[in-house]
Amino acid sequence: MKLALPTLALALAASTSAQDYNQSAPFNLVIVSENKTVDGDYLASCHSGAGIESLCLTNQPSTSKPDPTPASVYQFNTTDTGATPNATIGQSGYLTWELHGADFNVSSALAFYFSYSSNVVLPLFYPGIDYSTVVPVAFDSNNLMNIQDYVIDTVNPPTYGDEKAYYRWYACTTYYLGYTYVNLAWTLGEAAPQNPTCVKVDVKRVFV
């Protein structure tokens, strides 16, 4: 059975009452890029609002965070869906990070913030886990993070095929609620990002 991204997110939500999530060992996320300015940077959850965190690059300058910023620790959560995932591109699940407050700990799952004027999307962790907005990601056999889909709309009429992994990650200087960071970003479709600061990157999982 094939599920589009919104459908998969809803399926993950619906499955919470029926099955448990399998949580991975903790890991860091590392930038891999031909651009030496960002290559080797780790990702860190950076304050971007009340309990909201973006994924900023550790060694990039900013007036809103210390430089360098300590790398954050993440985990990956999947379910036993009964479907056999593609071992090469990986099984889709969701990426989580735990917010530690003075007297609380809150687990958050990755979501996307869309600007209607841009094709550059900002990945964010919002407080708690809203399974209706979670963004499914996967890690392939090389531990590179991807997003999968099976719909092909670059032909007329649109068609579908096997699940395909996309790696449309970029490092971009972004603005959100008054915070400007060099952040991990995602681009919509095949077009180049309209943000002129964006450089192409991959995101690699490194267990700690």
Rank of each mutant, 00 (worst) to 15 (best):
K2P: 12
T7N: 09
A9K: 05
S17E: 14
A18L: 10
N22G: 12
N22E: 15
N22S: 15
S33E: 05
E34P: 09
N35C: 03
D39L: 01
D41C: 07
Y42C: 04
L43D: 00
S48R: 14
G49T: 09
A50D: 11
I52S: 04
C56P: 01
T58D: 01
N59P: 06
Q60P: 01
T63F: 09
T63R: 15
K65D: 00
D67H: 12
D67V: 14
P70M: 09
Y74W: 15
N77P: 03
T78F: 01
D80K: 13
T81Q: 07
A83M: 11
P85F: 14
N86Y: 06
N86C: 13
T88P: 00
I89W: 07
G90M: 12
G93T: 02
L99S: 14
A102S: 15
D103E: 13
S107G: 08
A111W: 08
Y113F: 05
F114L: 13
Y116L: 13
L122W: 00
F125N: 02
I129N: 01
D130P: 14
D140N: 15
D140A: 15
N142W: 10
Q148H: 07
D149L: 09
T154H: 13
V155M: 08
Y170V: 00
A171F: 03
C172A: 12
Y176S: 07
Y176E: 08
Y179E: 00
V182T: 10
N183K: 02
L184A: 05
T187W: 03
L188R: 15
A191F: 04
A191E: 10
A192K: 15
P196N: 12
C198S: 08
C198K: 14
V199S: 11
K200P: 05
V201Y: 07
K204S: 01
V206S: 04
V206K: 09
V208L: 10
